[in-house]
Design a protein around this nucleic acid. Structure first.
Lengths: 208, 208
DNA sequence: ATAATAAGACCGACCAGTCTGTCTTATCCA
DNA sequence: TGGATAAGACAGACTGGTCGGTCTTATTAT
């Protein structure tokens, strides 16, 4: 097996350290120590510590955005789409928890140039979710009395907050969490008479 | 009107600055400049910058905890209790948004001694919410198929996340948000046949 | 008088980023 | 084939600035 490049080792170590101690709680020297490398090695691979932070942000949001688009395109009903996005996003916690934590905790420290780039992609992501809900309301799948913007944010909130408490080795598996969250969301937004539990459940089991 | 003490002016300014730029993005000199005071004044009122951060954390969590206990004690059904807590917590955003932002963004930078103290109160708070849901399930008000721990976190998540997007001068008022969130939560956890919409709505209007 | 604050010089630690140099690998030419 | 050269990847000492915190002196209000 090919050894990991220093660049990747730096990213992995930073992710881990930033997650626990925060961007400003971790010095470049600490990262170097962790990767058994040197200042030279670090600055050979990254223009600055800020650029490293940006890279981590971008890697995650780019991935999330791609997956959300994919989920939108490969499904037809709003219920399926929302379920797929929720499902995907929670599954990602097992792979990208550090990225996500850094993303939501440290983005204030992004330099303005970087910040702009990230903001754009974030907005795009939110738009997709918003659109799914909007279309669901219009098609009659979802309860019409719900203001779409607030509902969107409530869903984003409950999912995103997971990074604050989820532990890979905790008592709740990501699959359990996914099932419960999906159930809660379905109950809160889908019309009662449109809620075909069997079907939704089936949909999930076969997609896991 | 009595002038604000320097201590309070420092807290207000820090809150505002920390919220926008993060704890490490704000220097003590910047706080002094903002409050038209001095190093002497600052260190007369606070042992250190860390202590100031702790104070902000404590002020908020103490308030939240008190209110949650109060909500628990002054109501009898789980539905009323959960609604009151949700309602209260969202209303607090108008008053304590900066506290909340600092609380959720900067707690990693608390010194260990301080961190322990805060953690205790946070845990207590979570326990109250957990207990309300647990009792609601036991009494048959809430859907029994829901695992209480995950549901608790989903509610905490959708509420807490609000600090990321809510703007006092935005298009959605905190009252609208409260109504929608309550509606979503009621639909997601309360048994369909137990859901007396009229009653819940009434309960809200009279309490606002 | 005493406490609260202002003013601001100064210290020392810390830390991002630089600079010079070394070692390895790839390329090219005779 | 082998010697010369260039390029990339890293090592590590060093620098320059920043920032939290101290200290001293002066001022104001109760």
């Amino acid at each position: 097996m090919a050894e990991k490049s220093l660049r990747n080792r730096i990213i992995d170590a930073s992710l881990h350290l930033f997650e626990i101690q925060g961007y400003h709680g971790v010095t470049v020297d600490r990262i170097i120590e962790e990767t058994s490398s040197s200042k030279g090695g670090f600055y050979h691979n990254f223009k600055s510590k800020d650029e490293l932070l940006y890279f981590i942000h971008d890697e995650f949001i780019t991935y999330a955005l791609t997956k959300a688009k994919e989920a939108y395109e490969t499904h037809t009903t709003s219920t399926e789409r929302i379920c797929t996005i929720v499902q995907f996003f929670l599954q990602v916690f097992d792979l990208y928890k550090s990225h996500i934590t850094v993303f939501y905790q440290e983005s204030v420290y992004l330099k303005p140039e970087y910040s702009e780039l990230i903001k754009k992609k974030r907005k795009e992501f939110k738009q997709i979710l918003f659109r799914v809900l909007q279309e669901g309301v219009e098609s009659g799948e979802f309860r019409t009395e719900l203001p779409v913007n607030i509902t969107t944010m409530s869903i984003i909130g409950m999912i995103n907050w997971t990074y604050k408490w989820y532990r890979k080795d905790g008592e709740m598996s990501i699959n359990e969490i996914t099932d419960v969250f999906t159930d809660l969301i379905i109950h809160s937004i889908v019309h009662e008479d449109r809620r075909e539990n069997e079907q939704v459940t089936q949909f999930f089991i076969k997609n896991r």
